[in-house]
Protein backbone atom coordinates (compact mmCIF):
# COMPACT_ATOMS: atom_id res chain seq x y z
CA UNK A 1 0.00 0.00 0.00
CA UNK A 2 3.00 2.31 0.41
CA UNK A 3 3.39 4.99 -2.28
CA UNK A 4 5.51 8.04 -2.78
CA UNK A 5 2.63 10.35 -2.18
CA UNK A 6 3.30 11.05 1.53
CA UNK A 7 6.79 12.28 0.71
CA UNK A 8 5.44 14.63 -1.87
CA UNK A 9 2.57 15.55 0.42
CA UNK A 10 4.84 16.51 3.31
CA UNK A 11 6.58 18.95 1.07
CA UNK A 12 3.36 20.58 -0.09
CA UNK A 13 0.53 20.00 2.46
CA UNK A 14 -0.02 22.16 5.44
CA UNK A 15 -2.39 21.72 8.33
CA UNK A 16 -4.66 24.23 6.66
CA UNK A 17 -4.71 22.15 3.50
CA UNK A 18 -5.66 19.03 5.46
CA UNK A 19 -8.39 20.87 7.32
CA UNK A 20 -9.78 22.28 4.07
CA UNK A 21 -9.71 18.83 2.48
CA UNK A 22 -11.51 17.33 5.48
CA UNK A 23 -14.06 20.09 5.27
CA UNK A 24 -14.55 19.45 1.56
CA UNK A 25 -14.90 15.73 2.20
CA UNK A 26 -17.25 16.27 5.07
CA UNK A 27 -19.37 18.56 2.94
CA UNK A 28 -19.40 16.01 0.15
CA UNK A 29 -20.29 13.20 2.59
CA UNK A 30 -22.91 15.27 4.28
CA UNK A 31 -24.57 15.79 0.92
CA UNK A 32 -24.41 12.07 0.26
CA UNK A 33 -25.83 11.32 3.69
CA UNK A 34 -28.68 13.73 3.07
CA UNK A 35 -29.49 12.07 -0.23
CA UNK A 36 -29.20 8.61 1.26
CA UNK A 37 -31.51 9.64 4.06
CA UNK A 38 -33.94 11.15 1.56
CA UNK A 39 -34.09 7.89 -0.37
CA UNK A 40 -34.37 5.81 2.77
CA UNK A 41 -36.95 8.00 4.46
CA UNK A 42 -40.14 6.98 2.60
CA UNK A 43 -39.92 3.25 3.35
CA UNK A 44 -38.66 3.87 6.89
CA UNK A 45 -41.36 6.42 7.64
CA UNK A 46 -43.91 4.15 5.99
CA UNK A 47 -42.71 1.22 8.05
CA UNK A 48 -42.89 3.22 11.27
CA UNK A 49 -46.25 4.82 10.48
CA UNK A 50 -48.04 1.83 8.99
CA UNK A 51 -46.40 -1.11 10.72
CA UNK A 52 -44.43 -0.33 13.86
CA UNK A 53 -46.81 2.26 15.25
CA UNK A 54 -50.03 0.29 14.65
CA UNK A 55 -48.36 -2.85 15.95
CA UNK A 56 -47.23 -1.11 19.12
CA UNK A 57 -50.70 0.37 19.40
CA UNK A 58 -52.26 -3.08 18.93
CA UNK A 59 -50.05 -4.52 21.65
CA UNK A 60 -51.19 -1.75 23.96
CA UNK A 61 -54.84 -2.19 22.94
CA UNK A 62 -54.65 -5.90 23.70
CA UNK A 63 -54.06 -5.03 27.36
CA UNK A 64 -57.19 -2.89 27.53
CA UNK A 65 -60.93 -3.19 27.66
CA UNK A 66 -61.78 -1.15 24.58
CA UNK A 67 -64.82 -1.06 22.32
CA UNK A 68 -62.98 0.51 19.40
CA UNK A 69 -64.87 3.77 19.81
CA UNK A 70 -64.33 5.30 23.22
CA UNK A 71 -61.52 5.45 25.77
CA UNK A 72 -59.43 2.43 26.75
CA UNK A 73 -59.30 0.89 30.19
CA UNK A 74 -56.07 -0.86 31.16
CA UNK A 75 -56.83 -4.40 32.32
CA UNK A 76 -53.37 -5.97 32.10
CA UNK A 77 -53.34 -9.57 30.95
CA UNK A 78 -57.06 -10.14 31.46
CA UNK A 79 -57.81 -10.41 27.73
CA UNK A 80 -55.16 -13.10 27.39
CA UNK A 81 -56.43 -14.96 30.44
CA UNK A 82 -59.97 -14.87 29.04
CA UNK A 83 -58.76 -15.88 25.63
CA UNK A 84 -57.09 -19.06 26.84
CA UNK A 85 -60.28 -19.97 28.69
CA UNK A 86 -62.53 -19.17 25.75
CA UNK A 87 -63.72 -22.41 24.10
CA UNK A 88 -64.64 -20.50 20.92
CA UNK A 89 -61.07 -19.28 20.57
CA UNK A 90 -59.78 -22.86 20.66
CA UNK A 91 -62.49 -24.04 18.32
CA UNK A 92 -61.75 -21.24 15.85
CA UNK A 93 -58.03 -22.05 16.12
CA UNK A 94 -58.76 -25.72 15.42
CA UNK A 95 -60.97 -24.81 12.46
CA UNK A 96 -58.22 -22.58 11.07
CA UNK A 97 -55.69 -25.41 11.44
CA UNK A 98 -58.11 -27.78 9.76
CA UNK A 99 -58.30 -25.50 6.73
CA UNK A 100 -54.53 -25.96 6.33
CA UNK A 101 -55.22 -29.54 5.20
CA UNK A 102 -55.97 -27.94 1.88
CA UNK A 103 -52.37 -26.75 1.50
CA UNK A 104 -50.66 -30.12 0.78
CA UNK A 105 -53.67 -31.27 -1.24
CA UNK A 106 -53.58 -28.09 -3.31
CA UNK A 107 -49.83 -28.28 -3.80
CA UNK A 108 -49.95 -31.93 -4.92
CA UNK A 109 -52.75 -31.21 -7.36
CA UNK A 110 -51.15 -28.07 -8.73
CA UNK A 111 -47.79 -29.81 -9.19
CA UNK A 112 -49.56 -32.62 -11.03
CA UNK A 113 -51.34 -30.09 -13.20
CA UNK A 114 -48.12 -28.20 -13.84
CA UNK A 115 -46.39 -31.41 -14.92
CA UNK A 116 -49.29 -32.27 -17.19
CA UNK A 117 -49.54 -28.82 -18.70
CA UNK A 118 -45.79 -28.51 -19.24
CA UNK A 119 -46.09 -31.27 -21.84
CA UNK A 120 -46.99 -30.51 -25.40
CA UNK A 121 -50.65 -31.44 -25.35
CA UNK A 122 -53.57 -30.08 -27.32
CA UNK A 123 -55.41 -27.20 -25.69
CA UNK A 124 -52.57 -26.53 -23.27
CA UNK A 125 -53.06 -22.75 -23.25
CA UNK A 126 -56.81 -23.20 -22.86
CA UNK A 127 -56.40 -25.41 -19.79
CA UNK A 128 -53.81 -23.12 -18.26
CA UNK A 129 -56.27 -20.23 -18.66
CA UNK A 130 -59.18 -22.23 -17.27
CA UNK A 131 -57.26 -23.21 -14.14
CA UNK A 132 -56.10 -19.65 -13.62
CA UNK A 133 -59.53 -18.01 -13.92
CA UNK A 134 -60.54 -18.63 -10.26
CA UNK A 135 -57.37 -16.84 -9.13
CA UNK A 136 -58.33 -13.58 -10.80
CA UNK A 137 -62.02 -13.85 -9.91
CA UNK A 138 -63.57 -11.98 -7.02
CA UNK A 139 -63.44 -14.08 -3.88
CA UNK A 140 -66.86 -12.81 -2.82
CA UNK A 141 -68.38 -13.89 -6.15
CA UNK A 142 -66.69 -17.28 -5.92
CA UNK A 143 -67.93 -17.77 -2.38
CA UNK A 144 -71.52 -17.08 -3.45
CA UNK A 145 -71.13 -19.41 -6.42
CA UNK A 146 -69.87 -22.23 -4.22
CA UNK A 147 -72.56 -21.56 -1.67
CA UNK A 148 -75.04 -22.40 -4.39
CA UNK A 149 -72.98 -25.33 -5.61
CA UNK A 150 -73.15 -26.78 -2.10
CA UNK A 151 -76.88 -26.21 -1.76
CA UNK A 152 -78.43 -29.39 -0.39
CA UNK A 153 -81.29 -29.62 -2.87
CA UNK A 154 -80.39 -27.71 -5.98
CA UNK A 155 -76.59 -27.57 -5.70
CA UNK A 156 -74.36 -28.64 -8.54
CA UNK A 157 -72.22 -30.80 -6.26
CA UNK A 158 -75.15 -32.93 -5.13
CA UNK A 159 -76.57 -33.08 -8.63
CA UNK A 160 -73.28 -34.53 -9.87
CA UNK A 161 -73.20 -36.96 -6.95
CA UNK A 162 -76.78 -37.97 -7.74
CA UNK A 163 -75.64 -39.07 -11.22
CA UNK A 164 -73.64 -41.76 -9.42
CA UNK A 165 -76.51 -42.65 -7.17
CA UNK A 166 -75.04 -40.83 -4.16
CA UNK A 167 -77.27 -38.62 -2.07
CA UNK A 168 -75.04 -35.76 -1.05
CA UNK A 169 -75.34 -33.99 2.29
CA UNK A 170 -76.37 -30.40 2.80
CA UNK A 171 -72.70 -29.49 2.82
CA UNK A 172 -72.58 -26.18 4.60
CA UNK A 173 -75.29 -27.03 7.12
CA UNK A 174 -73.78 -30.23 8.44
CA UNK A 175 -71.08 -29.79 11.09
CA UNK A 176 -69.21 -32.79 9.67
CA UNK A 177 -69.11 -31.69 6.04
CA UNK A 178 -68.99 -27.89 6.34
CA UNK A 179 -65.22 -27.62 6.88
CA UNK A 180 -64.20 -30.13 4.20
CA UNK A 181 -66.56 -28.32 1.81
CA UNK A 182 -64.72 -25.06 2.45
CA UNK A 183 -61.36 -26.80 2.04
CA UNK A 184 -62.42 -28.12 -1.38
CA UNK A 185 -63.42 -24.63 -2.43
CA UNK A 186 -60.15 -23.12 -1.23
CA UNK A 187 -58.11 -25.74 -3.03
CA UNK A 188 -60.04 -25.03 -6.22
CA UNK A 189 -59.54 -21.30 -5.82
CA UNK A 190 -55.79 -21.52 -5.21
CA UNK A 191 -54.97 -24.22 -7.73
CA UNK A 192 -54.21 -21.91 -10.66
CA UNK A 193 -51.79 -19.71 -8.74
CA UNK A 194 -49.70 -22.61 -7.43
CA UNK A 195 -49.87 -24.27 -10.82
CA UNK A 196 -48.41 -21.24 -12.61
CA UNK A 197 -45.49 -21.05 -10.17
CA UNK A 198 -44.84 -24.78 -10.44
CA UNK A 199 -45.11 -24.57 -14.21
CA UNK A 200 -42.36 -21.95 -14.31
CA UNK A 201 -40.23 -24.03 -11.93
CA UNK A 202 -40.76 -27.28 -13.84
CA UNK A 203 -39.84 -25.63 -17.13
CA UNK A 204 -36.70 -24.18 -15.61
CA UNK A 205 -35.27 -27.61 -14.73
CA UNK A 206 -32.30 -28.23 -17.11
CA UNK A 207 -33.17 -30.90 -19.67
CA UNK A 208 -29.64 -32.23 -19.37
CA UNK A 209 -30.40 -33.57 -15.90
CA UNK A 210 -33.29 -35.67 -17.23
CA UNK A 211 -31.18 -36.86 -20.16
CA UNK A 212 -28.35 -37.88 -17.88
CA UNK A 213 -30.77 -39.68 -15.55
CA UNK A 214 -32.42 -41.45 -18.48
CA UNK A 215 -28.99 -42.61 -19.70
CA UNK A 216 -28.35 -43.97 -16.21
CA UNK A 217 -31.60 -45.94 -16.48
CA UNK A 218 -33.76 -43.87 -14.11
CA UNK A 219 -37.47 -44.43 -14.63
CA UNK A 220 -40.09 -41.66 -14.67
CA UNK A 221 -40.81 -41.93 -10.93
CA UNK A 222 -37.10 -41.76 -10.07
CA UNK A 223 -36.67 -38.77 -12.38
CA UNK A 224 -39.54 -37.05 -10.61
CA UNK A 225 -38.40 -37.81 -7.07
CA UNK A 226 -34.69 -37.24 -7.66
CA UNK A 227 -34.77 -34.32 -10.09
CA UNK A 228 -38.10 -32.54 -10.45
CA UNK A 229 -39.16 -32.54 -6.81
CA UNK A 230 -35.83 -31.25 -5.43
CA UNK A 231 -35.58 -28.69 -8.20
CA UNK A 232 -39.02 -27.22 -7.52
CA UNK A 233 -38.48 -27.24 -3.77
CA UNK A 234 -37.85 -23.48 -3.50
CA UNK A 235 -41.26 -22.92 -5.07
CA UNK A 236 -42.83 -25.48 -2.75
CA UNK A 237 -41.24 -23.71 0.19
CA UNK A 238 -42.51 -20.35 -0.99
CA UNK A 239 -46.01 -21.72 -1.53
CA UNK A 240 -46.13 -23.49 1.82
CA UNK A 241 -45.05 -20.35 3.68
CA UNK A 242 -47.42 -18.00 1.84
CA UNK A 243 -50.31 -20.47 1.96
CA UNK A 244 -49.95 -20.95 5.70
CA UNK A 245 -49.89 -17.20 6.25
CA UNK A 246 -52.82 -16.70 3.85
CA UNK A 247 -54.71 -19.69 5.25
CA UNK A 248 -54.41 -18.41 8.79
CA UNK A 249 -56.19 -15.25 7.69
CA UNK A 250 -59.16 -16.90 5.97
CA UNK A 251 -62.21 -14.73 6.42
CA UNK A 252 -64.22 -13.76 3.34
CA UNK A 253 -65.30 -17.28 2.37
CA UNK A 254 -66.44 -18.01 5.92
CA UNK A 255 -68.29 -14.76 6.29
CA UNK A 256 -70.18 -15.17 3.03
CA UNK A 257 -70.80 -18.92 2.97
CA UNK A 258 -71.48 -19.45 6.68
CA UNK A 259 -72.21 -16.00 8.12
CA UNK A 260 -72.99 -17.34 11.59
CA UNK A 261 -69.84 -19.43 11.84
CA UNK A 262 -71.46 -22.61 10.58
CA UNK A 263 -73.54 -25.23 12.41
CA UNK A 264 -72.15 -25.67 15.92
CA UNK A 265 -69.42 -23.21 15.04
CA UNK A 266 -67.86 -25.75 12.73
CA UNK A 267 -66.52 -23.25 10.18
CA UNK A 268 -65.64 -20.13 12.20
CA UNK A 269 -62.01 -19.22 11.56
CA UNK A 270 -59.90 -17.25 13.97
CA UNK A 271 -59.93 -14.09 11.86
CA UNK A 272 -63.71 -14.38 11.49
CA UNK A 273 -63.95 -14.61 15.29
CA UNK A 274 -61.63 -11.62 15.65
CA UNK A 275 -63.81 -9.63 13.26
CA UNK A 276 -66.97 -10.76 15.01
CA UNK A 277 -65.67 -9.71 18.42
CA UNK A 278 -64.24 -6.42 17.19
CA UNK A 279 -66.96 -5.11 14.93
CA UNK A 280 -70.16 -6.91 15.92
CA UNK A 281 -69.69 -7.20 19.65
CA UNK A 282 -67.56 -4.12 20.29
CA UNK A 283 -64.73 -5.98 22.05
CA UNK A 284 -61.83 -4.50 20.13
CA UNK A 285 -59.31 -5.02 22.95
CA UNK A 286 -60.09 -8.72 23.20
CA UNK A 287 -60.10 -9.06 19.40
CA UNK A 288 -56.70 -7.40 19.23
CA UNK A 289 -55.31 -9.86 21.77
CA UNK A 290 -56.55 -12.74 19.63
CA UNK A 291 -55.09 -11.18 16.47
CA UNK A 292 -51.72 -10.85 18.21
CA UNK A 293 -51.76 -14.47 19.38
CA UNK A 294 -52.56 -15.53 15.82
CA UNK A 295 -49.74 -13.34 14.50
CA UNK A 296 -47.26 -14.86 16.96
CA UNK A 297 -48.33 -18.40 16.04
CA UNK A 298 -47.88 -17.68 12.33
CA UNK A 299 -44.49 -16.12 13.05
CA UNK A 300 -43.36 -19.20 14.97
CA UNK A 301 -44.52 -21.55 12.23
CA UNK A 302 -42.78 -19.43 9.59
CA UNK A 303 -39.49 -19.37 11.55
CA UNK A 304 -39.63 -23.16 11.90
CA UNK A 305 -40.23 -23.47 8.17
CA UNK A 306 -37.26 -21.25 7.36
CA UNK A 307 -35.05 -23.28 9.72
CA UNK A 308 -36.17 -26.55 8.15
CA UNK A 309 -35.66 -25.18 4.68
CA UNK A 310 -32.14 -23.99 5.52
CA UNK A 311 -31.30 -27.42 6.92
CA UNK A 312 -32.41 -29.06 3.68
CA UNK A 313 -30.72 -26.58 1.38
CA UNK A 314 -28.76 -27.88 -1.56
CA UNK A 315 -27.10 -26.67 -4.73
CA UNK A 316 -26.76 -28.39 -8.04
CA UNK A 317 -23.17 -27.14 -8.18
Amino acid sequence: MATTAPEQATSRWTKEDARAARKRNAKLHRKEYVWAAAFLAPPVIGWIAFLLFPMAFSVYASFTNWNGLGAMQWIGLQNYVNLFQDPYFWKALWNTLFYMIGIPIGLALSLGLALALSRKIRGRTFFRTVYYIPVISSLAAIAILWQWAYNGDFGLVNQVLALFGIQGPNWLMDPVTAKPALVIMMVWKGLGYSMILYLAAVQAVPRSLYEAAALDGANAWKRFTKITWPMVRPVTFFLVVTNIIGGSMIFTEINIMTPTGGPQWSTASLVWYVWNKAFRNLQMGYATAMALVLGILVLIVTIIQFRLNRANNFSID
Binding site: F50, S138, A140
Partner: peptide, 23 residues
Protein backbone atom coordinates in the same frame (compact mmCIF):
# COMPACT_ATOMS: atom_id res chain seq x y z
CA UNK B 1 -54.10 8.35 13.45
CA UNK B 2 -52.99 5.34 15.46
CA UNK B 3 -56.51 4.03 15.80
CA UNK B 4 -57.18 4.55 12.11
CA UNK B 5 -53.97 2.76 11.20
CA UNK B 6 -54.84 -0.10 13.53
CA UNK B 7 -58.33 -0.35 12.08
CA UNK B 8 -56.87 -0.27 8.59
CA UNK B 9 -54.57 -3.09 9.69
CA UNK B 10 -57.49 -5.05 11.07
CA UNK B 11 -59.48 -4.52 7.90
CA UNK B 12 -56.50 -5.52 5.79
CA UNK B 13 -56.05 -8.60 7.93
CA UNK B 14 -59.69 -9.46 7.50
CA UNK B 15 -59.56 -8.81 3.79
CA UNK B 16 -56.21 -10.45 3.13
CA UNK B 17 -57.58 -13.72 1.91
CA UNK B 18 -59.56 -11.75 -0.62
CA UNK B 19 -56.66 -9.66 -1.79
CA UNK B 20 -56.46 -11.40 -5.11
CA UNK B 21 -59.97 -10.46 -6.08
CA UNK B 22 -58.59 -7.63 -8.12
CA UNK B 23 -61.42 -5.26 -7.41
Amino acid sequence: AAVAATMAGALTLAACSGSSSGN
